[in-house]
Design a protein around this nucleic acid. Structure first.
Lengths: 154, 154
DNA sequence: TACTGATAGTCAGCATACTGATCAATATCA
DNA sequence: TGATATTGATCAGTATGCTGACTATCAGTA
């Protein structure tokens, strides 16, 4: 019978599990309370001021129903603002606050440290190769999930 | 600024997201209703008859609080039985049912197909290399999550 | 312009995952 | 033995992530 360790799906779950644990630990050590998902959303909002929720979801491959709760919590924490769009009354525009900008700046070392720790079993070269292979597999499977990565419609 | 695609944590989430979607799609096409987590638990119970929940959790690196619900649903579906242990009245012994065995047998092709599909962007060699690197990174980070992989205490 | 279809956001419901707490039972050791 | 520590299972609470449904709005077209 096939072992769990021969199943890419099982390895994917384990690696993701460790990645999240490492991220949360590093961020907490730095004195912050932000999940990987919240961090990615915050960074993307900063890089794309005024974007709407669907665009944000596409940029980081979240499901649009998941993003609602994530944004709720970022607003709750005072890191972003959500306001109705002037162009489209269905849409909400997202903007990072000064507090959000400050948090993002101060949290960056912890985030980068987490990325290093989750690859600490690999050489630099192996880490690069792992990321290359993941990117390639993801590109081929992108359309298979409900929340594919999408370019921003400039 | 660092791109999402240079963050192993982000790539881990994306790959896991696709892996789950592919698994569920293949299994549903085969006429079954079983999640990746439920499948791994069922296969492990079959391979280790009479094991208790903590041991099961250790073998597939689940959190012990998560396993309760997973087992509830497997029992609900009639695929396993949960009964009090004779040796330790705190523990529950888990056993696969005939129905569980039948399901496992019939679902295997779909599961294997899913593993192939989630690597379809890679050559066979690259797929092997991805799994090797994931295994290595996971081994180094195993203790960093709340639910590390553990050997069964024979 | 009125109809039709698509889109943005939300909600209910379900299944992982985790933290931290609790209860019952077992193990250890002074 | 009796006090203490540990362990197996569960629960409450929170955060992703999904399916499917729904409302409001927009866009395209007959």
């Amino acid at each position: 019978m096939k072992d769990n360790n021969d199943m890419p799906g099982h390895l994917a779950r384990r690696f993701q599990q460790i990645a999240v644990a490492v991220f949360l630990a590093e961020v907490e050590d730095a004195g912050f309370d932000l999940t990987p998902v919240q961090y990615a959303a915050l960074a993307t909002i900063k890089a794309n001021p005024g974007l709407d929720q669907v665009t944000l979801a596409g940029l980081i491959a979240y499901d649009r129903t998941t993003i609602t709760g994530v944004i709720d919590r970022l607003v709750q924490k005072g890191l972003i603002e959500r306001r109705p769009s002037s162009r489209d009354r269905r849409a909400r525009e997202l903007e990072i606050t000064d507090e959000g900008r400050r948090t993002l700046r101060k949290i960056t070392p912890a985030v980068e440290s987490a990325q290093r720790i989750m690859l600490r079993g690999l050489s630099a070269k192996e880490g690069e190769e792992l990321m290359r292979l993941l990117r390639k597999a993801i590109a081929a499977g992108n359309q298979l999930s409900r929340a594919p990565l999408r370019d921003a419609q400039v």
